[in-house]
């Protein structure tokens, strides 16, 4: 059974899509069979990769035309990474898309059909706590919360945590908080540093990995590629996602009772 990880936040611009894509790439580059699912009605994953709005079939084709999910999975240049795009949804039908995704079992059935032999399914969601986010939380095992290190985003943390708590108690008892991922961190900026101080000093589940604010993210999205695919030297920000994938894997192993067989070694 695959590990389903949903990226969620109540506030927009927290780095969900950036994290979903770059984390998925990092997991795939480590050899894990990974699918990233674009649930965002905007089709954020496709937009990040500079695709046209109607380039890719995807979940919409499954929902509307009954297309088998396997037929709309997009391969990538990484053999271990595939994308389930949003599909060709008319923007005027987004309301209906959200309602249908939340209602019934289409998302659960779609994931069941594509995750045979898959290690990780990473679900990108739209900002907010609406039907799509709720549908994703209801079918996932782990919630990863990007937290933009700035005051307004910090003040919204209670909202997403309350929803996760509610879903865990009433809809999906297997849902767990995988971690809070600080993003766009600027330790040379007082408001950002103040948020990090508050988060580090009292919150539970805060990941060791942080993602700094950096121009390289815009550079990568302008070209339409993940960070680790940028030419030239390996960017330190790309290494952050390698670290993140390592930390995620270790956390999931710990939470699912998988023993760590990494024993002490002797040097001499």
């Amino acid at each position: 059974m695959s590990h389903r990880i949903v990226l969620a936040s109540s506030k927009g611009g927290s780095g969900k899509t950036t994290t979903a894509l770059n984390l998925s790439v990092a997991l795939a580059e480590r050899g894990h069979n990974t699918i990233v699912v674009d649930l965002d009605p905007q089709g954020a994953i496709g937009l990040f990769l500079a695709k046209e709005d109607s380039d890719w079939g995807g979940l919409a084709e499954v929902m509307i035309a009954g297309t088998p999910p396997a037929e709309v999975l997009q391969s990538t240049s990484l053999p271990t990474l595939r994308i389930l795009p949003r599909g060709r949804i008319d923007p005027v039908d987004i309301c209906e898309y959200e309602l249908q995704l939340h209602r019934g079992e289409i998302l659960s059935k779609t994931l069941d059909e594509i995750e045979d032999g898959v290690d990780y399914v990473v679900l990108d969601t739209p900002s907010g706590l609406g039907p799509v986010t709720r549908a994703a939380l209801a079918v996932s095992r782990f919630a990863l919360l990007p937290l933009q290190a700035e005051p307004v985003a910090f003040r919204t943390m209670s909202q997403i945590l309350r929803v996760i708590d509610h879903v865990q108690q009433h809809e999906n008892p297997s849902l767990q908080l995988l971690g809070i991922l600080p993003t766009m961190v600027r330790l040379d900026n007082d408001p950002s540093l103040n948020v990090m101080s508050a988060v580090w000093s009292g919150f539970g589940g805060v990941l060791d990995t942080v993602v700094p604010r950096a121009d390289v993210f815009t550079e990568a999205s302008e070209i339409g590629i993940p960070l680790s695919f940028l030419g030239g030297r390996t960017r330190p920000e790309a290494r952050r996602f390698t670290l993140l994938s390592d930390e995620i894997e270790a956390r999931i192993n710990q939470m699912t009772g998988v023993e760590d067989d990494n024993e002490h070694r002797r040097l001499v």
Partner: peptide, 17 residues
């Protein structure tokens, strides 16, 4: 920001979850 009830709730929920 410090001491706001929303932040306190978030802190408590994050520790519990």
């Amino acid at each position: 920001t410090v001491g706001s009830s929303d932040v306190e709730i978030a802190r408590a929920l994050s520790r519990r979850l």
